[in-house]
Simulated assay, not measured.
Amino acid sequence: MTCRAPIVKSACCANGRLRKDAVLKTGAETTGPRIDSILDHWARHVRIANGGATRHGLTLRRSKASMRPVLSHILAALEGHSIAKAFDADGTASQAARHYGELRHEQGFTIGDLLRDFRQLRREVGLHLVEASGNIRDTIDAVRNIDDAIDRAQAIAVETFHVIDVETLTELVAQDPLTGLFDYGYLWERLEQEIQRARRHDRPLSVVMVDVDWFKRYNDAFGHLWGDVALKQIAAILQENARRSDVVARYGGDEFVMILPETAIPGARTIGERIRQAVTAFPFKSRTDEAVSISASIGCATVGDELTTARDLIGRADGALYAAKGDGRNRVIVYEDGMPCLAP
């Protein structure tokens, strides 16, 4: 039988009923032993439901840490805080619930598992309130407030699952069939989003455009099928040199574009040079099984102080790429004022 904290008699009047101020104080002590006790009991039951500590011990510890801020905001309802305001779109309560949903999705759990987590949380909080009062009728208002808060937190966490699934499906549909990179249409859509985000938060954003040197000669010498193999290998090189936040897309033919959030020109130049060296050093194969050298010309551009559109940014990177080819190919050029901006 589960052992729980003793009933707090000092919070009750002579007739055993819970004082109103005592109910409210339970929400103010969310960083103390009360929230720890609720989380411990919640984690114990979730662990059993998920298959035991051996399989889910690590994920359960992360889940418990992620649930803590959610529970803190839920218990704030006992202090009379507005649940609607606490769980609005920009509130920290919403962010905490969203983070919990993202974590459970990352851990491979289903929406059913997520609903079971919140069902168990509702049970543990309700038992905590009953044990603190000793009389369930004295906790009806508190339970109603808590139910409203849990409902909102649960809805946000579940919505996160749907958003992630839709984004994943969108990305799968937007793949280039040859290279597995994002396709031309997704590139423009995502670049517009990243430019808006960079402007809104005043953060740097750069793009790197990569073009394979003399690729037509390679196709003519070895055939288009071997050319396709080379494009796949170059795509793999780009992905290996990309960070998790970067977007790598096939622009068309033998051209590729990388979107680099949180990256100014020095960082874009470094990534471009790393890619150039990796392509040059890679032993591309031919039908004779001999290693063939391929090089790449690369142009870099960044969002400036003036209003920059997606077409302007790509046009500048293309202009820098044009300059790299004009300077002899196999080099990285950064866009500068005076260079042609090849935007229509």
Rank of each mutant, 00 (worst) to 15 (best):
T2K: 12
T2R: 15
S10T: 14
S10E: 06
C13G: 12
N15K: 07
L18E: 02
K20T: 14
K25E: 12
R34Q: 09
L39H: 09
L39G: 03
A43V: 06
R44M: 14
R44G: 03
T54S: 06
R55E: 10
T59F: 10
S63N: 08
K64V: 15
S66L: 09
P69N: 06
V70L: 08
V70G: 01
S72W: 03
S72I: 14
I74K: 03
L75T: 03
L78G: 11
K85I: 12
F87D: 03
S94P: 09
R98N: 09
G108M: 03
L114S: 08
L127I: 07
D138S: 09
T139W: 02
I140K: 11
V143L: 15
R144A: 13
N145D: 09
D148C: 11
D151Y: 07
V158I: 11
D165Q: 15
V166F: 07
T170Y: 07
L178S: 02
G180I: 11
D183R: 08
L187M: 13
P204S: 06
D213C: 02
F222Q: 10
G227R: 04
L231G: 02
A235W: 06
A242V: 08
A242Q: 08
A249Q: 06
G252V: 13
I259G: 01
T263M: 10
I271L: 15
I271R: 09
V279H: 04
A281R: 12
F282L: 09
S286T: 15
D289Q: 12
V292H: 09
S295H: 04
S295G: 14
A296G: 05
A296F: 11
A301Y: 00
V303F: 02
E306V: 12
L307W: 00
T309K: 02
A310T: 06
R311V: 14
I314W: 00
G315H: 03
A317N: 05
A317L: 04
Y322K: 06
A323N: 03
K325S: 02
R331H: 01
I333P: 01
